[in-house]
Design a protein around this nucleic acid. Structure first.
Lengths: 148, 148
DNA sequence: TTCCTGATTAGGAATTATTCTTAATTAGGA
DNA sequence: TCCTAATTAAGAATAATTCCTAATCAGGAA
């Protein structure tokens, strides 16, 4: 059994549990997501998908990504006020965002994930997720600058 | 000299340094911002302002808020993919976002601000700001739930 | 298997936030 | 006071996303 078969099993189960029909569109969107390690937009998924599924509509992509977000299969990212990005990696992690080129890179910092929040913070309510955004200039942009 | 006079001096200087004319519109937008402790949207500032400056345009509000963001007087927040919010508090801090009522509350966590980032993270580039988003359910919403 | 029904889809229209365009006005220096 | 580049108001334009509707379809029941 390949890793993809494994993933396809997962989506079947998740849809079933949620009372959602596993339509060919949903399956293809899911497969497309599997092939993205990064943070694609709905538009990008739509464009890629249209090559092999010419009749798919952008609306379906948006709807499906929203459903997948609710199921916890992917995660919506509101990083800039341009298009929404979708994180295909749902393991706990954070992001570095280059203010020049807008590149978004994953960050892992398990020690921070484990750290207790201050009393004053946990007193605000029940905290479910923590997401750190680091903003700065990536090495690629720094190098360009030095050369130019 | 009142605290507001002090602030007005600040905006005068900042505009001057940036070669920006201090127009009445900019001054009024700045004053309006001073009266918001929270995270107003451009639309809200516009609506409030229109009561005493009936001819101001939404475009001017957007342009001015963008300029103020560039000058570091306020900070754009991309928290949801609905409207952009503006943070009138530019001291280093973080946010708690209630997933139910969308309330945004400031968080202060100086120990975290001082903490060193892992080697693997600082190696990505030059990191300028860190912003933590905690998502969860605020006490108000938790109480409603328990009562309902 | 075939039929049925509610869920889902495609496609385009609508909506919403934000930015752009343009002609008119104005702040602030000469 | 005059001049000029910067700024503004107003509405048009843009862009991302969502809504609407009729048609299609997945999967359960017979």
């Amino acid at each position: 059994m390949t890793s993809q078969d494994n993933e396809l099993d997962k989506i079947r189960k998740l849809c079933d549990q949620a009372g959602m029909k596993l339509t060919p569109q949903r399956l293809e969107i899911f497969k497309e997501l599997l092939s993205h390690e990064d943070h694609p937009s709905a538009e990008l998924i739509f464009t890629k998908l249209r090559e092999r599924l010419p009749t798919i509509s952008l609306d379906t992509v948006y709807r499906t990504l929203a459903s997948f977000d609710e199921l916890g299969i992917i995660k919506k990212l509101n990083i800039s006020n341009a298009r929404t990005l979708f994180d295909t990696n749902i393991e706990q992690h954070h992001h570095f965002i280059c203010t020049k080129c807008k590149r978004v890179e994953d960050i892992h910092w398990p020690d921070f994930d484990k750290a207790n929040l201050p009393e004053s913070v946990s007193a605000l309510g029940s905290i479910q997720t923590r997401h750190l955004e680091l903003h700065g200039i990536c090495n690629q942009c720094l190098n360009k600058k030095n050369k130019g």
